[in-house]
């Protein structure tokens, strides 16, 4: 695991237990998830017992303990998006890719996630794809989006 990136994240924060969440946020941003050795290294550097670091890492939604796909598709399932059919989008994405929310596709191309509100309720249902936001989504639009990201044309599902 590339130690240099981790070193720069930990720079100036060593032995400061209260920085734990901020540090983990940066690790997550940098690596896309929290690798095991990074968690161990953070525990040593901040002086926080491993059990506590692991507890924090598994408690907050922002952190993922498993690697995520190249494309992360996040479907907002907040109330406003829910009443406008966010469930259809989740069905579409999981059905098309054959994975459960939170899981990565076998080829490592996609992870489908859902978030409880992105705060763009007026434009719902909202989907973000690798950080960029798509509003007023419909299953058909999402299907095209996934297909185009996949670059392999139609029909990924078995």
């Amino acid at each position: 695991m590339p130690g240099r990136e981790l070193d720069s994240i930990l720079e100036g924060r060593r032995s400061q237990p209260h920085q734990l969440i901020e540090v983990l946020q940066d690790v997550q941003e940098n690596f896309g998830y929290l690798p095991e050795d990074a968690i161990r290294a953070v525990s040593r550097a901040l002086g926080v017992p491993l059990t506590e670091v692991y507890g924090v890492a598994s408690f907050y939604k922002a952190f993922s303990l498993k690697p995520r796909g190249k494309n992360v598709i996040t479907i907002c399932t907040g109330t406003a998006c829910h009443v406008r059919g966010a469930r259809l989008l989740l069905n579409q994405a999981t059905g098309q890719l054959g994975v459960a929310p939170g899981e990565m596709t076998e080829d490592g191309m996609f992870t489908i996630e859902h978030v409880n509100c992105l705060g763009a309720c007026a434009l719902g249902p909202v989907v973000t794809e690798n950080g960029s936001c798509h509003h007023h989504m419909a299953p058909g639009k999402l299907r095209k989006l996934i297909t185009s990201l996949n670059g392999k044309g139609e029909a990924t599902h078995a």
Partner: peptide, 11 residues
């Protein structure tokens, strides 16, 4: 840390 789904005034 506005977590209420369907509310975004704080944002």
């Amino acid at each position: 840390d506005e977590g209420d789904p369907g509310a975004y005034m704080d944002r």
